[in-house]
Design a protein around this nucleic acid. Structure first.
Lengths: 197, 197, 197, 197
DNA sequence: GATGAATGAGTGTTCATTCAT
DNA sequence: CATGAATGAACACTCATTCAT
């Protein structure tokens, strides 16, 4: 006896997720340029027409995928966020979480890198996306107030914390050997040296 | 004896340069995805067929353009390179030169960013390109020997010097106000704090 | 005994009428070519699948719509038909009714024009549709018998009565200013001059 | 020995004409709605992509075809135009020429009918097209001055001369037997009766 | 060297229709 | 009766590249 837990013809989150995964996978394998709707659909094992049931168009698919990853990233980073710790420890947790995320979800990270470096990047509501990261911003500002962190614009502080991670964790950019745990520890120290007073 | 009534730059070079400029311009304006051979040719005011006189195919055009820019960048960075200065000053010159270059040649810089974040990036002979930057590597290594700079892999050092520049000088990534000269000065200090012992 | 708490017009008829109106509206606004089933369904605020409850397929929808309008037109034209009047007066009433109908129901009229000038036109049982207009044909034949109207094939007579109306009342064909009541009166006189002996 | 009178790779008016003919033929056979670019190209024995060498897009193809036919029609009608004849004779020549044209080039005529009754019709510069027919307009106006023709707007006069031709010569509209030469003669008399004073 | 013409293969998207519920 | 989901086939159009000149 067959029991259907979900109807055969109702909106199917499995399909949407298949499209999401197919998009990320293909963009990583063959790049933004070559990732056509039909290839993505084929990868997700649905008809190209079905894609348009779940997304308004290709742009919507890509932007949605980007935002979903950004949200996922922010949740990963903030998962063990503990505001009661010393500021350096909070930031170290955040930094290592992000390094882990990038290293272990390279496909996701490479997607958002390609996305941000494309004209699609201009289509995103950046303020909305930055909302996700407000707790980190707040920590930086607390650090400035407490004279622990250099009193400069938060974007400049961010520039020395996060872009180095992308670079170090992304084999497409780092044309050298993978980093050891000790290297990663050192790298955080360097980031901290950059921003600390 | 040959007398050139026309400029020394031959007709051919003019066409090739027009294609180079058209490629950079279009990739910036409409992105990698939409930059087709025929659009590039039209922008350069030549026939699509002519493009194939100068480049083997589209990939060759894009890779060549990337390498040309990388070379140009390295020359700009190393233009006032003076090995006799103190290490911090050398690096400061390099850093500011690069910041200037990125800020003043954003089109070039955005091109290589898009390029590097695409599968085309995998086609480049990175070792050859890194040759251009050897003098800088050498300075870093001298700094390490002299116990001025942290004794870590040169890629890690680079990660805290150059990616922050891309981030801070690229409006597509920095979703905030432009940097003041004082900000830029501060930013270098932070880079130096990161790498110095 | 059955008591209707809801109006006599059933839910079904409402949907069918909505589809009818949506079809006419869309064909007028965007043309036969662009009037897809899903757009018509959306305009009628029903699911595309629902359309197939009321019509066999798209062809059935269009042909039915055409025939319904033709019937409506015939009823409008024959509403004040009075066989006891002089022949010229009968035809004048008919002619002016039709002009009124076309002018006041341009959407309907443009639909049947587009329809007739398309291969769908070949699918209609013309004899059945012409039944609606038999009284007019009869008047013309009475006129011929009474030596008031030229003794030619009824289609030729019709050619000078009705196509000019389409032309004069349809802004898509008449590329000039709208007609005044006096113009319309004159136009009937011309039609009559054409057919009278 | 083969002699090439035209190069194999230069713009080829034969291809453009093949596309023109294919467009007319297909629109007649399967209608505007179903006449897709790929079907037209296949009918003309060229690649769909080649169509875009000769026409900007589908709209351009259809509008150009329409205008070309209109021009052809005007030339046919005015071929034996003799301004020195009596006005009735001039118009009779024009009328019969047009009847002939429609009857003998039904494909062309049906194309422009379908075209005019579609939203594409709105895209044409009607004033430009009407230029072709100015000599006829002038005759009508001379007739009005000479008190031979009714003093009404030229569009109303036209409405009783030309739409009846479309109707009588077009089997899709005239659901009856074909007209005899005598019928045609009579039909012109009726048109003349309509417009003459 | 330089080109406009030409195209098979592909693009993103919409089509008319069916299906399970 | 009514529906949203699903799709193969088609849509208009552009692609990178080649070819004859």
């Amino acid at each position: 006896m067959i029991v259907y837990f979900r109807s055969m013809r109702t909106r199917d989150d499995e399909k949407k997720e298949a499209l999401f995964k197919a998009t990320v996978k293909l963009v990583n394998e063959i790049g933004f340029v070559a990732s056509s709707v039909s290839k993505i659909a084929k990868q997700a094992r649905v008809s190209p027409a079905t894609l348009y049931v779940y997304y308004k168009n290709k742009e919507d698919l890509l932007v949605s995928t980007y935002i979903d990853i950004k949200l996922d990233l922010s949740q990963a980073i903030l998962s063990d966020f503990d505001a009661s710790l010393p500021i350096r420890d909070i930031l170290k947790n955040v930094w290592l979480s992000m390094f882990d995320y990038v290293a272990n979800n390279l496909e996701y990270y490479k997607f958002i890198e390609q996305f941000a470096n494309s004209p699609y990047g201009d289509l995103v509501d950046h303020q909305a996306v930055e909302q996700y990261f407000i707790p980190i911003i707040n920590v930086l500002e607390r650090g400035i107030e407490q004279k622990i962190i250099k009193a400069v614009d938060r974007h400049i502080l961010a520039a020395f914390m996060f872009p180095p991670i992308s670079y170090l964790a992304n084999p497409r950019l780092l044309h050298g050997p993978e980093l050891s745990p000790a290297d990663i520890e050192t790298a955080f120290t360097m980031a901290w040296d950059a921003i600390k007073l």
